[in-house]
């Protein structure tokens, strides 16, 4: 195995991990504050991709907006997923706060409806975004050779999202409130903070990250129905491995799972999924809270 091959597979794993991180960090954020397991997270990913594409397609064909189409699609995808997430939190999940299993069942019901409605509205044909010229095509990377520039952009974006979330949680007033809410919601409410408003904001933010992941994912690879299951699965596995509600843990989990998936496909192609689950089961056996998760108090 040449060094070049080794580096390419590893880099592929990292670019996949970046996408998983963007999607799973939203899942983890929602879980961290509200203890809500959002089973519709994969559906929000799809909503981002489909709505983004519905906006992108006509714009890309027009002369005036063609170059900005992709950026507008990203904004549209984030907004669509965030608004849907906001609606889910306000209409269904907010008033059953604390009933975790019921919330999970509600989001399962919602995910069935969302997936079916997307199918009804957009049909089942696969599609793919075209990245803007700046991010299109290959670029020379030392030791590797030509590598798609969009995949490198994906890594950069994931790092930016990670830093952004860290700054948000650690350096802003909202972050202080969110972290206090993770520890003790009731005390936070007693301090005069409008907890339902914070919860709705966090849910919209987490859902928006799923929407962002949707557009990015559908630019890197063609998008088709059924990816909601895949991204729900990956979000679950990544946060189970990394530790729920921890941004660092999510990043670690995403890198582990992304690398395992790519290396697994190289080393034993049809059994690569098994590797992911061996990792998950071994982590659970030793660290039931995940690698960087906090022990329940």
């Amino acid at each position: 195995m040449s060094l070049q091959f080794f580096l390419i597979v590893t880099l592929n794993g990292l670019t996949l991990a970046s996408l998983y991180f963007i999607v799973a960090s939203g899942f983890s954020l929602i879980f961290g504050l509200m203890r809500t397991v959002n089973m519709a997270h994969g559906s929000l990913y799809m909503v981002g991709a489909y709505v983004g594409f519905a906006v992108f397609d006509p714009l890309y064909a027009s002369n005036t907006w063609g170059s900005q189409a992709w950026l507008i699609a990203i904004v549209a995808g984030i907004l669509a997923a965030a608004l849907l997430g906001l609606f889910m939190q306000v209409a269904f999940l907010g008033w059953m706060q604390g009933q975790e299993l019921r919330q999970a069942l509600v989001t399962i019901g919602l995910s069935i409806i969302i997936a079916d409605q997307l199918l009804a509205r957009f049909g089942g044909n696969p599609f793919q975004f075209f990245a803007p010229d700046m991010l299109f095509g290959p670029v020379q990377v030392p030791f590797i050779g030509r590598y798609p520039v969009f995949r490198l952009f994906q890594v950069g974006l994931a790092v930016a999202v990670g830093i952004g979330l860290w700054l948000l949680l650690n350096k802003t007033k909202l972050g202080i409130i969110v972290r206090a809410g993770v520890d003790d919601r009731q005390m936070l409410a007693a301090c005069g903070v409008n907890v339902p408003l914070v919860a709705a904001t966090v849910f919209a933010l987490g859902a928006g990250l799923a929407g962002l992941g949707g557009v990015i994912g559908a630019t890197a690879q063609p998008m088709a129905l059924g990816v909601d299951a895949r991204f729900l699965l990956m979000s679950l596995v990544v946060v189970i491995v990394g530790g729920m509600g921890s941004i660092g843990g999510t990043a670690l989990g995403a890198v582990l799972i992304g690398l395992a998936e790519q290396w697994g496909q190289v080393l034993f192609p049809t059994y690569s999924v098994i590797l992911t689950f061996v990792i998950m089961a071994s982590v659970l056996a030793v660290w039931p809270q995940g690698l960087l998760g906090r022990k329940p108090v």
């Binding site: 203890r35 397991v37 729900l232 679950l236 596995v237 189970i240 039931p288």
Partner: peptide, 19 residues
């Protein structure tokens, strides 16, 4: 799933099933 309960159990069993 022996060490997990409730919502964690739901997540892990779902991950196993889809996987």
């Amino acid at each position: 799933a022996v060490n997990t309960r409730e919502i964690y159990l739901l997540m892990i069993t779902l991950a196993l099933a889809v996987g």
